[in-house]
Write a protein that binds this DNA or RNA. Structure first.
Length: 428
RNA sequence: GGUGGGCUUCCGGAGCGGUCAAACGGGGCAGACUGUAAAUCUGCUGGCUCACGCCUUCUUUGGUUCGAAUCCAAGGCCCACCA
């Protein structure tokens, strides 16, 4: 199976600037390929997985991979897929984010060269910082035409949106991304840019520029993958409106694992193809499992395992699984305070002095611990039966007793079915 | 620069002097049912007390009024069209 066919089979191909046959042929010889990442946060999130996996597949197939971090473009903001203007980042923020992103990427990509073709990380700020406005307008600006720029989807959507315009700064984004491709083409011989389908306009800005400068025969192509949504049409990678991050400080290993474990049946096979390196034959087996015994959620389990292992390592995976087996196994009986602490290491916790805990209603204590945004919310929860102490329902009138404190110092508060908090009690 | 339109609680969006903590929808949270599901149904969704009530909110600052999200003035930001 060719690389191109494999990518297609994994739902990683949406559109390409040349014919499918041509793209398939090109991918069979070593190329230099690039994809960009916005340094909008100090670590990547699940939404970046598709780009990362595409690059990883390409690298494994022997292509030279460049990960471009948009230190310069990140300070402007890509209008693609955005309904309103982005907040601009400061230089320091962008710089901090760069480091984190490289570390995140190294979990998937080989930057060391163990496989012979190490991935490269570049920052486009490096080639923009010394570029003056006037030289840039003279040398690069003249190569862009208004009509194609205005006709880009990202621009049209914004201009046509009610009560929503677009600043010149954002409009010029495509020039920068286009120039990035040209720059990498010149410096690294990069001839392919990959990205999400929302990047199509930006990618073609690059291929057009290259053809304009280097001639129509210069090889420069774009390949996009579809944006991943779940079966409900929601953008992939958000849980309760919050992004799933790759850093365990921002998304605990436990939550990360749980996020994938809760994947819908309708999505899980597609996700396995997109987000794991599992052979397609193995995924076909799992598809049978979903069809025959959906309640076992075997495919979800494998998906969560694979991704958690890649992102958080074998230890992270074990910790997440151990926590899950306890939390969903029912009772906390027989567990020592030490065991609980290690299981709940990843779960939000708070420390309160004993006299603020014992004898007080559970909901009040939970609110005081900061598990809820207000006491009213905690009270509501208790009333509706959504508040639990040590895995037992705690109504509005339930107070914390000495006996509730495991090992004299711990209590587990649960909101609803699946949100856990660990309360630590200290003497004074 | 000119003219018009707008800024409401997480989002969208009603409200146009008191009956407004503010309709409705979405989202979110919770409960029942379940497979740690989906779908469905139910409740909740500014804060404090939760019973009344009180407090802080409707871009900002002043003002008019017994009383303003609602009226007036000035400022800020956004949008559209014209130039």
């Amino acid at each position: 199976m060719t690389l191109f066919k494999m990518l297609q089979a994994r739902h990683l191909v949406e559109a390409h600037t040349c014919s499918a046959e041509e793209m398939e042929r090109l991918l069979e010889q070593p190329l230099t390929v690039y994809a960009g990442f916005d340094p909008t946060a100090e670590c990547l999130q699940a939404g970046n997985f598709v780009t990362i996996m595409t690059l990883a597949h390409l690298q494994r197939a022997g292509h030279k991979v460049i990960a471009l971090v948009g230190g310069a473009t990140g300070m402007i903001g890509d209008p693609s897929g955005r309904s309103s203007e982005r907040n601009m980042l400061t230089e320091e923020q962008v710089h901090r984010n760069l480091e984190g992103i490289k570390e995140n990427l190294s979990r998937f990509l080989d930057f060391e060269g163990k496989c012979g073709n190490p991935a490269v990380l570049v920052n486009n700020y490096d080639w923009y910082k010394g570029y003056g406005l006037i030289p840039f307008l003279r040398e690069v600006g003249t190569l862009f035409r208004m009509r194609p720029m205005l006709s880009k989807d990202s621009v049209q959507k914004r201009l046509n949106a009610e009560n929503n315009g677009m600043s010149f700064t954002e409009f010029s984004y495509q020039i920068l991304q286009g120039y990035d491709f040209y720059h990498l083409r010149k410096e690294y011989g990069c001839s392919l840019e990959v990205g999400g389908s929302d990047q199509w306009g930006n990618i073609t800005a690059g291929t057009d520029l290259i053809h304009r400068v280097l001639g129509p025969d210069a090889v420069a192509n774009g390949l996009t993958f579809p944006l991943v949504c779940d079966a409900n049409g929601q953008k992939f990678g958000k849980s309760a409106g919050n992004a799933i991050f790759l850093n365990k400080e921002k998304t605990s290993v436990y939550d990360f694992y749980q996020f994938f474990l809760r994947t819908l049946d309708a999505d899980v096979i597609r996700y396995l193809k997109i987000f794991t390196f599992l052979p397609l034959e193995r995924i076909a087996e799992l598809e049978q499992c979903v069809a025959r015994e959906p309640e076992r959620r075997e495919a979800q389990r494998v998906l969560a395992e694979e991704l958690t292992r890649t992102v958080h390592g074998e230890d992270g995976l074990r910790a997440a699984q151990r926590a899950a087996s306890v939390l969903f196994g029912g009772s906390l009986d027989g567990l020592s305070a030490e065991e609980l602490e290690s299981i709940f290491k990843e779960v939000p916790s708070a420390v309160l002095p004993r006299e603020q805990v014992v004898g007080h209603p559970v909901f009040e204590v939970a609110a005081a611990a900061g598990f809820f945004s207000s006491k009213g919310e905690a009270r509501r929860l208790a009333r509706q039966g959504g508040l639990n102490l040590n895995n037992a329902k705690a109504g509005e009138g339930r107070t914390v007793a000495d006996a509730d404190l495991i090992g004299g110092r711990l209590a587990v508060v649960r909101q609803g079915r699946k949100n856990y908090f660990l309360l630590k009690v200290v003497a004074q």
